[in-house]
């Protein structure tokens, strides 16, 4: 059972990493526009800029 001494802190570290990630995403404004973000994920990429016609 000594393995617990390593595994439990490891699990907590992973949890802390998750929390840090959440706080970072909050700070960088990722929760400011949830409706828009939902659509952006499935939006088409911008069409490539058409080069001026030279033929």
């Amino acid at each position: 059972m000594e393995i617990l001494v390593i595994l439990v802190p490891l699990a907590l570290m992973l949890g802390l990493a998750g929390l840090a990630g959440f706080l970072w995403s909050l700070r960088s404004g990722q929760y400011d526009d949830l409706d828009g973000a939902a659509w952006r994920a499935i939006a088409d990429d911008e069409p490539p800029q058409e080069a001026p016609a030279k033929r």
């Binding site: 526009d33 952006r40 911008e46």
Partner: peptide, 27 residues
């Protein structure tokens, strides 16, 4: 909708010297 969002962002980004055009759909 997403269509409006893309239309506005493309339409405004096409103006020269615009560095950011971002729609917030929630607000």
């Amino acid at each position: 909708c997403a269509g409006c969002m893309a239309k506005i962002e493309r339409g405004l980004s096409a103006i020269p010297d615009v560095t950011l055009a971002r729609v917030n759909l929630t607000d």
